[in-house]
């Protein structure tokens, strides 16, 4: 029964992937991609990787879907005037993708049995950190530097999006979707849902220390609620030049960096935690990161400034 479910799930994902590639309309391709992400999240659940499943659903499907949708909406007016790529380009892209797929498949199939793993070592040393969720342990203890750099990259990506704005509009207000229209039903949802969504986002961040969840998943939920509120017109998008907004953006990475640097003084190494204080420090860093990730992702989806800031 379970095998049948897994096989049909895998089959559906492959068919959906093929359909996403061959469909001509960008908008349909993005919708298919969002569904594809949700099905892949289901696969991660079947593989007992709930952390990865949550991230895939929230980031891979949700936030990326929102970014792609806004891109598709922007491209729509010019889409029909652009000539599709020629047969040579399509063949070249297909060949490169096929080689990558075959390479990944070969690596997965040719792994020695049992596969080389650091999991037992990681699990054996986890209790020292005071954390219960091994994924959070890897992210904030063993590979904390990667996690820190990842958050910095996110802010850099936002700087990249903002620099698309015209010079005189720098620090202005993002336009959000071009095709939004006020609707009382959407207003109702934007007033009702954030109470549930914000609570769930904070819970995901808080529970990440011991159960599946964490800063990225929680932050993505905050983003979703904020985007809903902005799209429904309940609250306007903030001016990108606001000092408080920019402080929020860097609060998480900065706090994480400060904790990391103070590791030199109190624990003898960068990003090291003193014994007994690992969990509280990680929870504080995660809280700040959740807020920063939520704001950064929301502004990424909102796009560059397109209106001047009111004086």
């Amino acid at each position: 029964m379970a095998l049948g479910f897994d096989i049909s799930l895998a089959f559906l994902v492959v068919v959906l992937a093929a359909w996403t590639i061959q469909v001509h309309d960008t908008y349909s391709a993005v919708l298919a991609f969002v569904v594809f992400g949700l099905l892949v999240a289901l696969i991660w659940v079947r593989l007992a990787s709930v952390d990865v499943a949550l991230t895939e659903a929230a980031i891979g499907s949700g936030v990326t879907g929102a970014l792609l949708l806004s891109a598709a909406a922007l491209l729509r007016p010019t889409e029909s005037t652009v000539a599709p790529p020629g047969a040579a380009w399509c063949t070249a892209a297909g060949v490169v993708c096929a080689i990558i797929t075959a390479g990944l498949g070969a690596i997965a199939l040719l792994l020695p049995d049992p596969a080389p793993t650091l999991a037992p070592l990681a699990a054996a040393n986890l209790p020292q950190s005071g954390l219960g969720n091994p994924v959070t342990g890897v992210l904030f203890v063993y590979r904390a530097l990667d996690t820190l750099l990842e958050k910095v990259v996110l802010v850099l990506a936002l700087v990249g999006v903002w620099s698309l704005a015209v010079d005189r509009l720098w620090g202005g207000i993002p336009a959000l979707w071009p095709a939004t229209c006020p609707d009382s039903t959407l207003t109702f949802l934007a007033q009702l849902l954030p109470s549930v969504g914000l609570m769930l986002g904070i819970y995901l961040c808080w529970t990440g220390a011991d159960h599946p969840g964490g800063a990225f998943q929680g932050g993505a939920l905050l983003t979703a609620m904020w985007l809903l509120v902005m799209l429904a017109g309940v609250r306007a998008a903030p001016a990108t030049g606001l000092l408080s907004l920019r402080l929020l953006l860097v609060a998480g990475p900065t706090l994480f960096l400060v904790i990391g640097l103070s590791g030199f003084a109190i624990a003898g190494a960068f990003l090291a935690y003193p014994p007994g204080y690992g969990k509280p420090l990680i929870v504080v860093a995660e809280g700040a990161l959740t807020l920063s990730i939520g704001v950064t992702l929301g502004l990424l989806a909102a796009g560059p400034a397109e209106r001047a800031r009111e004086p």
Partner: peptide, 20 residues
Amino acid sequence: LLAQVSAAVASQLIAGAVLR
């Protein structure tokens, strides 16, 4: 309940778009 709310709102929005 959450699925109910999202379905109700989404169908209202789609219907509104169709009417427009």
